[in-house]
Design a protein around this nucleic acid. Sequence first.
DNA 1: CTGTTAGCGCTTTCAA
DNA 2: TTGAAAGCGCTAACAG
Lengths: 352, 352
Amino acid sequence: MSAESLTILDIAREAGVSSATVSRVLSQHPNVRPDTFQKVKAVVDKYNYKPNSIARGLLQRQSHTLGIILPDIKHPYYASVFSAAQREAMSSGYVVQFYRLAYNSTITDDFINQLIERRLDGVLLCGGFIEPTCANDLPDVLHRLQRYMPIVTICPPITGLRCINIYTDLRSGVRKVVRHLSQLGHRRIAFIGATHETRSVGERQLGFEEEMAQLGLEPILLVENIHTPAMGETSVRRLLAEEGGDRAPTALVVVNDLVALGVLKGLRKLGISVPEEMAVVGCDNQFFSEYTNPPLTTIDLAPEELGLLGTRALLHAHDSNAASFNQARESTLIIRESCGAYLRRKIDVSAE
Amino acid sequence: MSAESLTILDIAREAGVSSATVSRVLSQHPNVRPDTFQKVKAVVDKYNYKPNSIARGLLQRQSHTLGIILPDIKHPYYASVFSAAQREAMSSGYVVQFYRLAYNSTITDDFINQLIERRLDGVLLCGGFIEPTCANDLPDVLHRLQRYMPIVTICPPITGLRCINIYTDLRSGVRKVVRHLSQLGHRRIAFIGATHETRSVGERQLGFEEEMAQLGLEPILLVENIHTPAMGETSVRRLLAEEGGDRAPTALVVVNDLVALGVLKGLRKLGISVPEEMAVVGCDNQFFSEYTNPPLTTIDLAPEELGLLGTRALLHAHDSNAASFNQARESTLIIRESCGAYLRRKIDVSAE
DNA sequence: CTGTTAGCGCTTTCAA
DNA sequence: TTGAAAGCGCTAACAG
């Protein structure tokens, strides 16, 4: 397999120079005489010699490697963050290592140790595991990690943790949604969400409740462990069983687009048409949301931007003294058809 | 930032032993006296010392790192392969690095060099860039890489390349689809696909044409550069413009589920109902395919299985002498509603 | 401009 | 059972 393992010394010998000179040639050091340069380069090319970046990293104390930790790369939101992070890292000569940490697990010392032993140059943490409201030692664990490498979190700010944090303000995002629905005339609005276990879900619920309160409306909540399309599909029936008849909601705010996918199917199976009989709004603006039937109104969280900015912040963490800051970004309401905003207009048009 | 940089020597001094002894303690070497072990362990714990895996790797000539290269992590198919690969690698103490290589680009020497310099213990290559039928030097480039590390490809086998290859047989998969549609009574079946630029797309088209020929049917082809939902959406109108009236297809075989998502929307906008007026079948069985309206009939390619098996093969590539083999897996036809298979039954039921 | 030297932090013979 | 010593492959002073 790896028969090819020439070292810099082999090249030096063959070229009749010292290893230092070869090193200089390799790293484009200016102080090399052109003819020496050529001579060495010829040998390097002849043997197709590739320096060992591990050895170089050992000496320079950097691995040119970034870690990125998230719960599920198959989730389109995380895939977007990851994708953008990788691009940004790559364009600066860094490589990304992927670490998975399940939604419901907390970050442990053992896990942290892996990162430390790998001597990463920085770590991006995103969602899930850094979310549990129950994990009170989270700041401690992350502060320990931070003694070894800069970290950037992409999630709602964690109380007691001093680090770079970037996120999209979900709370105000959901408030926008509720306001929009109320402007369309809805009074009985329900929130289909997960339990508070993750803070970013809690933020959504909080935004929902705050805005409903401000509008003087009574919130309808179905808060269970709902986080897949399948769970969304079954949740609808339960919600309408609990809140039936007069009390039935006319609009649904769904915790994310993935779940909303199931909610739409659930409503379809119940013969409830969207948006005529029920308005539906998601959250996330995934690639598929434009293609649901009807196209899903949702809020855009700009995950790629978070990944890009997070990585950039990480790469600059050494030179910038601002080792800790919070950056909140605004979400964007994407109005499509599932909320019924275009309903009246459509009807008007057809009536003409 | 990384103030914490104790070395094994610091620990050795503090514990009053040699670095060799500390090393033995750290790697659970049997020949250490229990009291020495405890003494050293105490110091290690006290300072929370974490050995530098980079240094260890340099000596042992392995990085315990696998590379995985694919065109787009946001694509659910690749995300699944990646996810499974990471799990399998992690469970064997390996970490995965992600490299992106765009769909349309070919793998270059420069790119290969990055991998070599990073001294990866193996590389998994998947889709896109290893696909172009035009890149005739592909085997050469990969053979060069292979001199440094084992590689596994996940794609239709590449002529002239000797390496481990695992894939799902798309050709027979699409043939199943066509057969199924013909059994449902369809005679005018169209294929909406991309150009031949990638072989895995070519395989699908080949399967389509082969089976149509075998059935004595005339194939209808819309083969352009269609690989996003948006392109799928617009493709329908073009197809029906070209092949209208009597010649209009009654069934559509779409190159993948992502594109099918757009095709469904395009048909909806044209007021063509699925499956009543047009049967649609996708390919890939993505997470969303069960939730389209109507649910999409498709073929399952088991990407997670490919990722798992590919990684496992990579990890065993050293001890197994079978340095090169092809493993083809069967695809599974997933019958849902968009193909109309349940149509008659439904009608019967409602007629009762 | 180039070579010598001394490591980076760890493991692993070989002796003791 | 433990320690001394010799590197893994490379870079970075420091001389010359």
